[in-house]
Computed example of a mutant assay.
Amino acid sequence: MANTSPASVIAPSTRTVIIGVDDSCFSEYAFNFYLTHVRKTGDNIVLVHVPEFHGVIQAPAMLTDPGVVHELVKEEEIRTRQLVHKYSEKMKQFGLGGKMKQMTGKVGESIIETSRAEHADLIIVGTRGMSKVRRTFLGSVSDYLVHHANVPVLVCRHKEFDAQHDRVHHHHHHR
């Protein structure tokens, strides 16, 4: 029998939405896409960030020089602080409830792990939100998520940016 008590009518549905973020414009696009097209009153947002140096340190070539590793870690810590600040401000600005989780390891696995732990209803990511370094030895995060997630995955294509991005960065692919 349908429950029609007044409380259930008034109470907004609470969904948990995971958004994968890094310091690229693709994450920002995914975040904005959520705001414009997906957002519902009462949503609980979990932003997941995986700092890149964890990946870099796993690359054997980098390990030969501790100085290089140290520099990368320092740079990444600064970038991470800026990123956390930026998204905290956005959450406040748009009155979003939720939190930011910093994870270590592989991006795809971290997002899936968070999704299970937080009982997420939806996962949102941008495509190509990977640095050049990262992309060379990590498969596509969005592919991984689509295959492993137990909830719907929304992969935001940045259509205006894609064509332009290919022109600007095409030289990186000739390695």
Rank of each mutant, 00 (worst) to 15 (best):
V50H: 02
E77Y: 02
N44F: 15
Y34W: 01
M91R: 02
E75C: 10
K86F: 10
S88R: 11
V38S: 01
R39K: 15
Y87A: 02
K90Q: 07
E89S: 00
E77S: 07
T64W: 07
E89D: 03
E52W: 06
Q82E: 14
Y87K: 04
A59T: 14
K99I: 15
E89R: 07
Q93F: 14
S88Y: 05
T36W: 02
E71M: 15
H85W: 06
V46G: 00
R79N: 08
V48Y: 01
N44H: 10
P51T: 09
F94L: 10
Q82L: 12
Q82P: 03
Y34A: 05
L63Y: 09
F53C: 04
L47C: 04
N44S: 08
K86W: 02
V56P: 00
R39G: 14
H85P: 00
T41P: 14
P60I: 04
H54L: 02
V56W: 00
L63N: 11
K74Q: 09
Q58V: 01
T36Y: 01
E52F: 05
G55I: 00
K92L: 15
V50P: 03
R39P: 14
H70M: 13
K74W: 00
G95Y: 03
E71G: 12
F53P: 00
E77F: 01
L47K: 01
A59V: 15
T36C: 10
V38M: 11
T36L: 04
V48M: 11
T80S: 12
A61Q: 13
Q58C: 09
G42P: 03
E71I: 09
L47I: 06
R39S: 13
E76Q: 03
T64F: 09
K99H: 15
